[in-house]
Design a protein around this nucleic acid. Sequence first.
DNA 1: GGGGGGTATGAAAACGATTTCAAACATCAT
DNA 2: ATGATGTTTGAAATCGTTTTCATACCCCCC
Lengths: 330, 330
Amino acid sequence: MAVSIKDVAAAAGVSPATVSRALGGGKVSAELRAQVEAAVKQTGYRPNLSARRLRSQEAQTIGLIVADISNPFFTGVARAVEDEAYKAGLRVILCNTDESPEREAMYLQLMEEERVTGVIFSPTRTTVTKLMRHEPGFPVVLIDRAEAGGRHDAVVLDNFAAAQQLVEHLYDRGYRRIIGLFGNASTTGIERHDGYVAAMRHVGLTPEARFIAPSVEAAQHEVAGWFRANTLPEAVIASNGLLLMGAVRALREAGRETPRDLAIAGFDNESWTELTGPGLTVIEQPVAEIGRTAMRLLLERLDEPRAPLRKVVLGGRCMVRGSTAARGAT
Amino acid sequence: MAVSIKDVAAAAGVSPATVSRALGGGKVSAELRAQVEAAVKQTGYRPNLSARRLRSQEAQTIGLIVADISNPFFTGVARAVEDEAYKAGLRVILCNTDESPEREAMYLQLMEEERVTGVIFSPTRTTVTKLMRHEPGFPVVLIDRAEAGGRHDAVVLDNFAAAQQLVEHLYDRGYRRIIGLFGNASTTGIERHDGYVAAMRHVGLTPEARFIAPSVEAAQHEVAGWFRANTLPEAVIASNGLLLMGAVRALREAGRETPRDLAIAGFDNESWTELTGPGLTVIEQPVAEIGRTAMRLLLERLDEPRAPLRKVVLGGRCMVRGSTAARGAT
DNA sequence: GGGGGGTATGAAAACGATTTCAAACATCAT
DNA sequence: ATGATGTTTGAAATCGTTTTCATACCCCCC
């Protein structure tokens, strides 16, 4: 069917071995190399990657398994990972799990069957514990979410400190009754919750936390409930971009405004947070840096499989905008 | 190294052929099948996809090459494609070109080397003409953007009609001086431009179109220029989500408001368009439907390679929001 | 009881590349 | 001139599957 290395060899009047060497950068006389290149051009030869991988036993491919491809945080990370991988001569298989443990398991198995070189992975809480049992046949670098035990390299945000920052900022601006909204699928939700609780206690306030599904709808429903029940707090902290959007939607639907009726702060500096109302105060994550670091950790791990585990913790930056203006200033 | 089908065969006391048949759904006695399954479990066997693909000559994999993975339009399409592919037992390799013809060429070549079953592709204008020369070794379904000549199946929005709709809507609301902002990388920009011009002429207005790079920054810069030069129109139509965001940003930076100072309408019903200012009037594209249809066309093409070409044109829906409230109503 | 027809199984070929190994040849020092 | 050494090339083995082909077996019917 398609043209194989044998056809090229025949056309160039050399052996398949020589063609392989000429294309793979081996030692070949300039004369034969030219013949081979001409033959390649003439026949329109394209190497068969399956055959190459089978024989050489290296896939030159990494898997990138993210929880939600429509979340700007992950697309940002993906972009950085892809750029770095490309520089290192590696291909990337991008997989989207939608926070579903079943799909995570499916993709991890697929990665084994593809015999990938390594995997960068943002697991759900469910899988993170399961990962510790069955050891896959490739190194794994966790991003965004890490295990407590820490059996894999990881790069994460300093979630505890970031949540603290938000609480302190709101406290400084005069807000006292502050509810925290956290995603229940990931470990980041827990860490941010812990930072929130610690900071609240530290300034002498009573923490009120809600763990909900990581979706716009769940957050919107939760916050809308506060309006209906007339139990609106002074401020809300949303643990990620989806929850943040849900909170904003609920506010708009109720015909209210931030910060007059409810101060809002959250995570993920998505481009729309700048454009809604007076702008939303958020923690900006160093997205590209996370992707680059994950790739670097993976490459180093491949180089040195027995090196000690490493967990890189990056700091977030608080972008203050109008949604947390000083209380009563309006 | 890893456990192969021979190891399983040895463990089960059968031949490799039998193992292959047992796993592949061939005819095997219940007894042996049970032995094989036990052996698979015991040895932890995972088939090697490279070997399988090499021998069976079918990749069971499609490539999905999109122009911008951080654009919600494409993530929406990708999600639908992935779901459908999964149902059909196909894997998906997702590639992001960032509207770069070089990366497009690179990925198309990669797809050839992977010997993929087929490709779904949103090409730049540059590549769409080049595609017509070199015929790749797999069927291609174009999405979002199609060739004029039409050598490949395609599924696109009715861009002409959608742009018309926006112009008519703005005209009805009392706006007269309407500038159109179009992306210069894709064929959609051209089609939307044509619809805009036709509709403007039809109602007796003078079209004023600008072709710019498909980025937030380019649009922001363009619109900001209008403020500086004091040549602000009454309304602007932005040809996609990025340009729309640029226009909104420029407006905010100038401290102005929509629709009082400038009416805004555009394409792509991204979730933030609902949350900014009084909401933005946009054309909603049937994202999931586009993905599903593309996958269906591809499967049908694989089934019937010689069937006549098909181009599916889907209609958009106009979501009217506050950014195009009747002129002077405020 | 012997031949025909189907079925389950295994041996071996094949997929398309890389890599090992050996052979051929050139180079150079003795 | 001879042997040692190194370099370039080709023949053949190999990677882990699937698939073809042959074989052995069973069942049934005449």
